[in-house]
């Protein structure tokens, strides 16, 4: 299962949004990865996500696999939208 998002927060996927996202997905059982510009990292890895340096205006894909994949993706959408991090494409 995957969803695509466009990052709209002016500083891109910086410290605070990254922290929020990683914290939100950590408690789920499913595997979750984030793909940006041909690079894929584990969304549960704060260092992995920060190392991507995702800028404002760019598009990223989140894909989840596992028993609670749907719930996980719903949570990601909720965190992204309610914190003004970005929008779903």
């Amino acid at each position: 299962m995957k969803k695509t998002y466009k990052i709209t927060s002016p500083d891109g996927l910086h410290a605070r949004p990254t922290t929020l996202l990683v914290t939100a997905v950590t408690s789920f059982e499913s595997e979750v990865s984030l793909t940006y510009k041909d690079k894929t990292v584990n969304l549960k890895s704060i260092m992995g996500v920060m190392a991507l340096g995702i800028a404002s205006g760019s598009v990223m894909e989140v894909s989840a696999e596992g028993p609670d994949a749907k719930e996980l993706l719903d949570k990601v959408t909720e965190v992204i939208i309610s914190n003004g991090i970005g929008v779903e494409c």
Partner: peptide
């Protein structure tokens, strides 16, 4: 969070 990073 760094401590909990599965990649590390």
């Amino acid at each position: 969070l760094i401590l909990g990073d599965p990649e590390i």
